[in-house]
Amino acid sequence: MNTKIRLIITGTTGMVGEGVLHESINNSDVEAILIINRKKSGVTHSKVTEIIHSNFYDMSNIENSLKGYNTCFFCLGVSSIGMSEKEYTKVTYTLTMHVAQTLSRLNQEMKFCYISGAGTNSTEKGRSMWARVKGKTENDLMMLPFSDVYAFRPGFIKPIKGLTKVHNFYKYINWIFPFGRAIYPAGFCRMTELGAAMMYVANHSYGKKVIDGKDIISIAARQV
């Protein structure tokens, strides 16, 4: 990408979105960041503009504010625990596709990076409900008229120290990271590596559209 990155990020009130926002603010290639949330993130920075928007299924009243951006990091997502397939499909597939369809119509030169998850099923079949839904979401995003679409599939993510949206249970399980990384590195990445890998594909092309844990670590090393 020859121009400065003008970036939209969703989901910055969650752990992954907050971490990606942190990495984006600190990247000199990023000129402007628009974050869209249902509630205030508490982040203030000269690069950052925030829109509070309650209904992600209808973006019509904020469309004018979404024009002129060349990258989107879509970090909005929920756990499937306790949800029916219909409910999970609505908040994962339907919501994501509506936002992406809107952005692709307004910004056809945009790169779209979607936070998916390790174990996602690209065949849209199999026993795992969430993996089927994520697989369909990835597949249909790839067909939209963006300049590029990348689906990131991290496993265990080691959070950035000092950020505020980290799940409480990480304080009890972070000790697993060095052992898991040594045994199965593809399943364990750092939040800094995920952010760096996303920044890299925003600036460069990459041969794979589905980016797993091993790719995240490899791409992040190029960004250093």
Results as ranks from 00 to 15, higher is better:
S84E: 06
T96P: 06
I160T: 05
E193M: 09
T137L: 09
I52Q: 09
I217T: 14
I62M: 08
G11Q: 03
N139I: 00
I157H: 04
F152N: 05
A220L: 06
A118G: 12
E23W: 01
K40L: 13
F56C: 04
G17E: 00
K86S: 14
F73Y: 13
V48F: 03
K67L: 07
I62V: 12
A100T: 04
L194R: 02
I219V: 11
D58P: 09
M59Y: 08
P145V: 11
I35T: 15
R6F: 02
Y88K: 05
G195P: 03
V133Y: 01
R153N: 14
E50N: 08
D140A: 05
Y57R: 00
P145D: 05
D29A: 13
V133W: 00
P159R: 09
M143K: 15
F146I: 06
I157L: 09
A32H: 10
C72Y: 03
N139M: 09
F188Y: 14
Q101I: 09
E23C: 11
R222Y: 14
F112P: 05
K208N: 13
V166M: 07
G82R: 11
G82T: 10
G213M: 04
K4I: 00
N55A: 03
F112W: 00
K86G: 06
F169M: 11
Y114Q: 10
V78D: 12
R222M: 15
G68P: 11
N168M: 12
L194G: 03
K125I: 00
N26H: 13
D140P: 01
M1Q: 03
A151C: 15
K86H: 12
S84N: 05
K40T: 13
R190C: 00
T89I: 00
V201K: 06
K86L: 12
A220Y: 04
V20W: 07
H22F: 13
T71A: 15
Y69F: 15
F188L: 03
V201Y: 02
T92E: 08
K208L: 02
K4Y: 04
T13S: 03
K67C: 06
V43L: 07
R153P: 07
S218T: 12
H167G: 13
E31F: 07
I36R: 05
Y206E: 11
F169R: 08
R6E: 10
T71I: 15
S147Y: 11
K40P: 14
M1I: 07
G17H: 05
Y206P: 06
I25M: 11
F156H: 03
T96W: 02
Y88W: 07
P185E: 08
M1V: 09
P178I: 09
D212P: 03
S218D: 14
